[in-house]
Design a protein around this nucleic acid. Sequence first.
DNA 1: AAAAATAATCAGGTCTACCTGACTAAAGAG
DNA 2: CTCTTTAGTCAGGTAGACCTGATTATTTTT
Lengths: 170, 170
Amino acid sequence: MTDISSQGKTAGKIIEFEMLQNIAEDDNKHESDYKMLFQGQGKILLALVDTDGISQKDLVDRIDMTPQSTAEFVRKLERRGLVTREKSITDKRVTLVRLTDRGRAEIQKRTRSIPEYLRVLSDDELQQFNNILDKINGQMYRDIKDADPTLQNKYHQFMLNQVLHKIHPD
Amino acid sequence: MTDISSQGKTAGKIIEFEMLQNIAEDDNKHESDYKMLFQGQGKILLALVDTDGISQKDLVDRIDMTPQSTAEFVRKLERRGLVTREKSITDKRVTLVRLTDRGRAEIQKRTRSIPEYLRVLSDDELQQFNNILDKINGQMYRDIKDADPTLQNKYHQFMLNQVLHKIHPD
DNA sequence: AAAAATAATCAGGTCTACCTGACTAAAGAG
DNA sequence: CTCTTTAGTCAGGTAGACCTGATTATTTTT
């Protein structure tokens, strides 16, 4: 029988953990801020990882944003040199977007780094932590799917299994 | 000897965890979005938890923001009915800010809820998880202190040990 | 009492994330 | 060869998180 108050304690610690991450990021300014991987420009960057040249339309479909917003973010990314935009030859309405090397590097920078704090865990603890995260993440996948059974939000699907491996193949 | 690749795996899972939280929050819209506890209005709300009536000046000192921004956020919170502002009688320059009940409730709403996903953990795992989080958080406290030894950023100090217990006393 | 310091406000600005509505340029269908 | 659909753009807007500079009250110091 699961102990509710222990769950509560854990919940608090998780919040604390997130707070601390946030504070730590304030200090590193820009370097490893993965808050911003989940919206706006970051979201687009991520959505481009596993493709090479995708139309804005397809982008829109996977990230669940209006075409206008999408276009705006793509443009911003272009200005930052993280993506390129070029007209398709086969369909002249279409704009193809692709990551530049700098774009790819940017994502990597923002997701790769092994947080320093993991160094305090022993091998055993690391093992346990892996385990726990697997369970939790698994549950969250399920919860999300339940909450959004239409699955029309392909962005989710997309994120969920592919991205990380693409970015950091073993 | 700690296994680096295992750390890498864990790092990936943590990112995945954060992604999933973010996605889940998209669905709940507004309800439990603790991303926004760490900036702007949320930050102020949090800074008010353990006080009853604090001057904007003191607020500024603890949250590391300009007085102007602070004033702006306080005003916004006032409009939302989450704080009150009143002139001090002893020093007529001073504006005292305090949380309303609704403000307090708001914070609670945003921090209290025990994430559903914790239910998949056994008592043992919960125990392990608590342990791990303690270790990690402890390390992060230390890292932050190291990175910012001036400690001039009192906001950090403030957050770190007090808030959560105030919000959810056992 | 005059000068200096302090708490806060006003005005105006930047940048990000989004959105709606109106519109253009191609492509596809009949 | 029109008619409609499609991909994308333009214009303009809201709202949040910040910031700088200038100014107003009030308190403190001298």
